[in-house]
Design a protein around this nucleic acid. Structure first.
Lengths: 253, 253
DNA sequence: CGGCCTCTTGAGACAGTTCAACCTATGTGG
DNA sequence: CCACATAGGTTGAACTGTCTCAAGAGGCCG
């Protein structure tokens, strides 16, 4: 039996590739030297060109955009084990701002260190490529969620995704996880008003699907929530899906 | 003066890197041998594992998902010069289906050819990396659009994006482009009913912002449309934005 | 204790949906 | 060349999900 990994990034990458002891040692180096940040702290502004990657060790951060009408849209959650800005070498200005949602422990990895490690550790580099693909699939899933689902379905979908992602980070034993997100943040995530978020949350509670008290969320009926959201987790777990060739390739062969 | 490039992929990549004559020659090889497909033709199913990349030479294709309630959500448009599935080497099942929206001319590039060329042409490989970053930024922009904008704003934003993307493909001279998209497709793109799409289109026409007749769209007041949508094109044109260092890096330095 | 932030509740307004009918082009086969 | 079929676009009317505004309740911290 392997030891469960304490470092959430190593845990996540290990779901994509087999890491060597050397790989793990290097990743541990990244996870050292975390700094604390308070909730709702801006870290990077839109159109900044950051010089370090950010590794989330604890807490939730996010990418977001402001519109001039005052609305804010959150476009991605950064959970423990998530790495922000994997594409430093291009030195592109950011299309989104980045900030904390809850109190966070964050590690900053300077450009040079990051690139050096990527060069030396092909398995890690490959796993990070797959992380990027998963992130793009997640963005498409969010588009579908915002464009095609009703309020309750949308919220249920989000809670299912958080459950799976936190579970791979080792932070959701027994369908239960720490959930220190305000309803206003949820509103900015799901494109609804926070009054409506409140009412939809109540509906999910009334239907016995979830229990949310004191910053802790328990999913009472995972299957019910999954059905409501029509949640298909395969975008997060690529390896679990059986491979089959596509019809079009037979045409072109 | 350079010649304007006929091949829309080469045109697009040239906005990111300087291509050598050899690069251009190889890209031309890809653009040969296109095949015709009718409008609304499915090409790849969700969870397929495709064995070739698809290059759009003419017409519009898209990525989309179906939900069991019958709704369809389009998650990305593939315009002339766009390449689908740049990540063949991972052999992951698709999270989205792919199909044509309009009649299309498509080139299929087998895995081996694709990987061979990437290996031989570092400039092209680098440009394709940047294309991927632009695509991810576009997905985040769509999330913002679906989550935070009203019907008219959302449609205006979409039309602005199409204008810019088609312009870089050389297909939108004089703020005018071929637009053979049905209102039902627009509805599936923007997360609204097609009745409502119809009414919002009428509003944009009534306000003198656009003219849409016979599958051709003319943007009469580009600035007005831009203002309505709060459209900021920097996610599509990374190079145009002046670089500035971020505040956080000063902290960590 | 007071102040602040988050959550909760109510009521009216509005944006967007649904259903259904009708209209108009375009294309097809006889 | 007409008769018809079909797909897409347009319109109206009723309905409903979601928003806004506003006020109150509960907790947490200095």
């Amino acid at each position: 039996m392997e030891q469960p990994l304490r470092d959430p990034l190593a845990r996540k990458l290990a779901t994509y590739v087999d890491l060597t002891p050397g790989d793990l040692l290097d990743l541990e180096g990244w996870a050292a030297n975390g700094r604390r940040f308070a909730a709702q702290t801006p870290l990077l502004h839109q159109s900044d060109v950051p010089e370090s990657a950010i590794l989330v060790l604890d807490g939730f951060a996010c990418r977001y955009k402001f519109l001039t009408n005052g609305r804010r849209q959150i476009t991605a959650y950064l959970l423990p084990g998530d790495l922000f800005e994997l594409d430093l070498d291009f030195r592109l200005p950011l299309d989104c701002a980045v900030g904390t949602l809850t109190a966070c422990q964050l590690a900053f990895i300077p450009r040079a260190d990051y690139e050096d490690l990527i060069g030396r550790r092909p398995r890690i580099a490959r796993a990070l490529q797959m992380v990027r693909l998963t992130e793009a699939a997640t963005l498409r899933e969010w588009i579908t969620n915002l464009g095609s689902r009703s309020g309750p379905e949308r919220l249920a979908h989000f809670l299912c995704e958080m459950l799976l992602r936190l579970r791979t980070a080792g932070l959701a034993p027994g369908n239960q996880y720490s959930f220190p997100i305000t309803q206003a943040d949820l509103a900015d995530t799901l494109g609804m008003s926070c009054v409506h978020i409140n009412r939809v949350l109540q509906k999910l509670r009334r239907d016995g699907l979830i229990e949310l008290s004191g910053r802790r969320l328990t999913i009472l009926k995972p299957e019910g929530l999954r059905l409501l959201a029509e949640y298909d987790a395969s975008y997060l777990e690529p390896a679990a899906v059986p491979l089959r060739p596509s019809a079009i390739d037979k045409l072109t062969a």
